[in-house]
């Protein structure tokens, strides 16, 4: 089955972001396909390259980066949610005259159209948080 994930909650608060990682890992292990994970609202904090988590907490960023490298899943940050939270790629940093990129290169900043597109191609959309 083809899944798309929509992540709404911040990795720094609550369980939604962690459940999304665990769901993705389990679904992929069982042979399902996840083509795209769309991060929206506070969910976009997942892409922050600047966040520092304590050593005794799992790094949510590293979990997503490993999954995307191993399974070629797309990690998309909603552009309007990301910008207002200071999450910028090199292009956005330059366009808005900020000091530099703040997201990990495994993530891509794009529009809500990517979520709509994912929904039309997947069998199931699973929302985390909110």
């Amino acid at each position: 089955m083809i899944y798309s994930l929509l992540v709404l909650s911040s990795p720094a608060s609550g369980h939604g972001a962690r459940h999304a990682v665990q769901f993705a890992r389990s679904a992929l292990q069982r042979g399902h396909t996840i083509d795209r994970v769309f991060f929206l609202d506070d969910g976009t904090f997942a892409g922050s390259a600047a966040a520092v988590f304590p050593q005794d907490e799992a790094s949510p960023l590293q979990c997503w980066v490993e999954l995307s490298e191993r399974h070629a899943l797309e990690l998309i940050l909603c552009v309007s949610s990301a910008l207002k939270r200071g999450l910028l790629d090199a292009g956005e940093a330059q366009r808005h005259e900020r000091c530099g990129p703040t997201i990990h290169p495994a993530f891509v900043i794009s529009g809500l159209g990517q979520l709509v597109d994912a929904m039309t191609h997947c069998d199931r959309l699973v929302t985390f948080g909110g």
């Binding site: 929206l40 609202d41 506070d42 809500l112 159209g113 979520l115 709509v116 929904m119």
Partner: peptide
């Protein structure tokens, strides 16, 4: 912020 995000997502789907 999710209040507005929800409506904006619906608008994107319609668009």
């Amino acid at each position: 912020s999710l209040a507005r995000t929800a409506i904006e997502t619906a608008l994107a789907v319609a668009a």
